[in-house]
Design a protein around this nucleic acid. Sequence first.
DNA 1: CGGATCACG
DNA 2: GACGTACGTGATCCGA
Length: 944
Amino acid sequence: MADKKHLYLVDGSAYIFRAYHRLPPLTDPEGTPVGAVYGYTTMLWKLAEDLDKAEGPTHLAVILDKSSHSFRNEIYDQYKANRPAPPEDLVPQFPLIRDATRAFSLPCIEEPDVEADDMIASYARAAQAQGWDVTIVSSDKDLMQLVGEKDGARIDMLDTMKSARIYIEEVEEKFGVPPEKVGDVLALMGDSVDNIPGIFGVGPKTASKLIAEHGDLTAALDSAEDMKKSKLKERLLEHRADAELSRILVTLKEDCPLPVALEDMKLDGVPPGPLAQFLEKHGFTSLLRRLDAGAGSPGRPTELNPAKQENASAPANAEGSRQPLPEMPKVDRSAYECVQSIERLEHWIERARAARLVAIDTETSALDSMAADLVGISLALGPNDACYIPLAHGGTDMFAEKPDQVSLDAALSALRPLLASDAVIKVLHNGKYDLNVLSRYDVEVAPVEDTMVISFDLDAGRGLDGIGGGHGMDELAERHLGHTCIAFKEVCGTGKKAIPFGEVPLDKATEYAAEDADVTWRLYQHLKRRLPDEGGAAIYERVDRPLVPVVARMEQRGIEVDRARLAKLSEEFATETGRLEKEIHALAGAEFTVGSPKQLGDVLFDTLGYKGGKKGKSGQYSTDQSVLERLSGEGAEIADKVLEWRQLSKLKSTYTDALQDAINPKTGRVHTSYSLVGAQTGRLSSTDPNLQNIPIRTEIGRQIREAFVAEEGNVLLAADYSQIELRLAAHMADVGPLKDAFANGEDIHARTATEMFGEVTRDTRARAKTINFAILYGISRWGLAGRLKVEPDEAQAMIDTYFQRFPGIQRYILETLERVRERGYSETLFGRKTWFPRISSKNQAERQGSERAAINAPIQGTSADIIKRAMVRMDEALVNAGLDKVRMLLQVHDELVFELPEGDVERASKVIEEVMAGAAGPAVSLDVPLGVEIGTGKSWGAAH
DNA sequence: CGGATCACG
DNA sequence: GACGTACGTGATCCGA
């Protein structure tokens, strides 16, 4: 059998999707993403190296999907219908897969209207008929139908990522049936990714049980008649036709015409010339070195150069030399064009298509993207190569003559295809804003790069003394380009004299607006190239960049609030604060402004003579909650009244009044604005209004949550990660007892109490909870002493006990600080960096503050990464499950709020739970489970 | 416009 | 010897 032929068929398209998600987003020297291509190249290399080995290939071919269309679409128009678009940085890698295959001088087969699976099946059968062994390099479950032996010729599969051979036993283990029955199981269970219906409500377990029991699909479906009454019986009877259709869809076509003869797939070593060229072009220098290291082209190991077990996973970008920054002349505003005719606009659009990358900025009538009207759009294709397209200038004065400009409709019609084109990258600065504005004009923008977000992913926290910390365009232009942008104030004025942008004369407007696009283009060149070198590519490409359109959609959806309910609360709060104010004045013996901490301090500690007043550096008495609570404990009635007054007045001004004003008149809903660069740790922040600090902790505040409601016929669903930061701390610091407690679903604070105090009572559990949080925040004996109302010595004893019981914690703290001191930044599990320039400050308070923040940042930041990953995947997962009416509305750090039809609750809960709980994988595998708690109700309050 | 206060995770 | 004590946010009010 020495000369037995063995054909390897590589399922190339499936491979690159998996490689994309498994590997970091590398780029080549030209800036093209090549992570998946790199994985693919090393995989081919390894296969070719196995030439002439016992189970290695004698023949090899790569099969790719040319189009998603096949005979299956003819019989079922929904086939693969809801498959989402591939990620933006994967798209440019598809053609490179072909280049890589050719570089190995391997046949690459792709036929129109034939799916790769069918082609693989046809080749496998053809080879088997000739007595060849066949290995299918894939882990696609559909292809498992082919596994087995016929006339002494064997077909197996190879999952290269898991280095696992798949044969009959493995298939049986997965499906509970032999390979030839796999199609029957698949027909029952369906496939959400390919949109194969199957039987609704039947999953892999039930499907394989039914087939194992009855032999095949028809028998299983027939058996339903004799079943006793059950949900399963109903479903089998009702959806029989779906299953029968699915059976056809999952059947592989084994008789496709074969464009390349089997003999022509002979693997005879890889000619090194074209391969070297390809490796060089994309900066795969570690592979290139192996190639040069001898006659070491893969598949042709020589006596002198036995195949090495070298680790080939070195990042491509770290090896290749970077392309130089394009030459950038100084900003010259006189070079900008004001586009005032459709012909000129079309000319720019044409050029943008050719350039494949365009920086864009929109000018509007207001700061609020959900209320602003479009006034103009600017484009930039290179330094000083920029234009402004005025669209609604001179609109406010009906009698004034309007300047020449392209009509809004005509311009948008011309721009729409460009802005939606996969082939042209749109670079924006704070793209979420432009996405929101343009979306209201039915303009879709994709794919998007965002220079504000790139800057954040590179430089979060890097500012010192308020300089250089922000990510606004003007600031970045100063920092990276040494250029001072025209200030908005200079163009539109300030205060009462401010004019809307639409009133700015076109020459001035062009200079301002086109400059923004020009600067955005330049910043992109500066910042994007730093991402791979400085380790920011993964967090940007996999988390923050895909998050931009997701968050934009959430902002656009907004949430309904019950105005009448808020108004009623406002009124109640007003009455009550008025009453309290009178009582406070009476107790003080004088009228004063209760809301003035200064006046209140004087009243309490001077006029009324209460003891223990402490003045801060502003020279005024502190009157905060803790002070008032102490006075109240000493019997000061006025302190109670002030506390109550403060609570109600806060709720009224910040929430019940302000939220009514925040209702958008057009949509009738409240649209917050999330900042992706607001919090140094990577959390989102929410403004205008802030919907991340709606009251919940007190009963009276909670009523405000009742005013956040679902639309008619819908409910709100709130999904919370439970104790996510503590779970992450347990994982990151490798704390055995805490990990065990989470694995067993224990009450974590109770467990801590047991470890610390030997018993769980209300008191010890509360103390344990405080200590757990203190740990996350970077503890000091005085801080803990203050919180627990004990002496610092006692607090120190508790900290010692904690470190003793949970030994990983202290090591985590010390190691984290050491790394931050050494490198200047902390890192999350997903590689997000936060910089701490004050970690070595000579000012002790400053330094210690930085240390506490640095201990907390990896934990808080990892939690932020995880929920962001969940958000990025959520819409696709819901749509795949047929839940396209479920809308994600809000994010509150460890909570996502959805609005959905009542009937979808059960299925949506399952999908949401799965996505959230699984959001760390596959990039990170946690030692602790992520718990998710879900509640639903007509209001946000009721959903908790 | 900064400080004090307090709403949230 | 003094400092100042829990991480991350944003909104509102007062008063200079």
